[in-house]
Computed example of a mutant assay.
Amino acid sequence: MSSNSILMIKTYEQLKAISDPLRISVISQIAHKSKTGKQIGESLNVSAPKIHYHLKELEKVGIVYIEKIELLNGIAQKFYITSGTDIVIDPELIPHLNELKESIRASIYSILSKSKAETLSAPEESFSVTSGEYMDWPIISIQTYVNINRDQFMEWKKKYHNLLDELATLEKNNKGEKTRFFISSVGFEASTEEGENQ
């Protein structure tokens, strides 16, 4: 988690650049760690030239940048990373937000796919338990439905993001031993039928 976690979308060009579901997937791949176009392509099962094209388009509008360049067999390997981890859209762009509907859905699906991949590749000790008390386990595993109004959800969401900011501060100030934890969360209005059955 970076202290500079906000990626503010301020222009229509930037909004248009992230309106492509594949670009949202590319962004999710390099939100926390820089990768080359080839590495991204291998993760997404997309050709490297196609990934490089989209990286260049995202770079043009300041959404990604080259964090470092390494030489491999005399060939420059460019490592791209996003300019922030959490995408926030300037309210001035609200008239254009309809263009983002499918990209937002694709982004959430990408987050869930990443969660599945991280779960499958996590070390065995990640799921070791030392007591019968869930709150003593160093994991979070929650999936639920709640029936509240939208204003209540938005108020709770603010508190949740404050907790994430607190986590970022802990990371920034921690000078001792560190363990890397993966945290993934999504939340959205679900179908009424599904919610009522839970």
Score class of each variant (00 low, 15 high):
2 S>D: 13
2 S>V: 03
5 S>L: 02
6 I>E: 14
8 M>K: 12
10 K>R: 14
12 Y>F: 13
15 L>T: 05
18 I>V: 10
19 S>C: 00
19 S>V: 01
20 D>M: 03
20 D>C: 07
22 L>C: 07
23 R>A: 01
25 S>T: 01
34 S>I: 05
34 S>Y: 07
36 T>P: 12
37 G>F: 08
38 K>I: 06
39 Q>K: 15
40 I>G: 11
40 I>Y: 04
42 E>I: 04
44 L>I: 06
46 V>C: 04
48 A>L: 03
54 H>C: 06
56 K>Q: 12
56 K>N: 10
57 E>N: 05
58 L>A: 04
59 E>Q: 14
60 K>E: 11
61 V>Y: 04
61 V>L: 08
67 E>H: 09
68 K>F: 06
68 K>G: 09
69 I>K: 10
71 L>Y: 09
73 N>I: 03
74 G>Y: 11
75 I>K: 15
75 I>V: 15
75 I>F: 13
75 I>Q: 06
77 Q>V: 05
77 Q>G: 06
77 Q>T: 06
83 S>N: 09
83 S>C: 05
84 G>P: 09
85 T>M: 05
85 T>R: 07
86 D>Q: 08
86 D>K: 02
87 I>T: 01
91 P>C: 09
93 L>T: 07
94 I>G: 01
96 H>K: 13
98 N>T: 10
98 N>H: 08
100 L>K: 04
102 E>F: 03
104 I>C: 00
104 I>L: 02
105 R>Y: 00
109 Y>N: 12
111 I>A: 06
115 S>G: 11
115 S>W: 00
116 K>G: 02
117 A>P: 05
124 E>L: 10
125 E>Y: 14
125 E>N: 14
126 S>L: 00
128 S>F: 13
132 G>A: 07
133 E>I: 14
134 Y>S: 02
134 Y>M: 06
141 S>M: 11
142 I>R: 12
145 Y>D: 00
148 I>G: 04
148 I>S: 08
151 D>E: 15
152 Q>T: 15
152 Q>E: 15
153 F>Y: 14
158 K>H: 10
160 Y>Q: 04
160 Y>I: 01
163 L>T: 09
164 L>D: 00
165 D>I: 08
165 D>V: 07
166 E>W: 11
168 A>N: 11
169 T>S: 13
170 L>Q: 14
171 E>W: 07
172 K>N: 13
173 N>I: 04
175 K>D: 08
178 K>N: 10
179 T>A: 12
182 F>M: 05
183 I>Q: 08
183 I>G: 02
183 I>H: 09
185 S>N: 11
186 V>H: 00
189 E>A: 08
192 T>S: 09
192 T>C: 04
192 T>K: 14
193 E>H: 05
196 E>K: 13
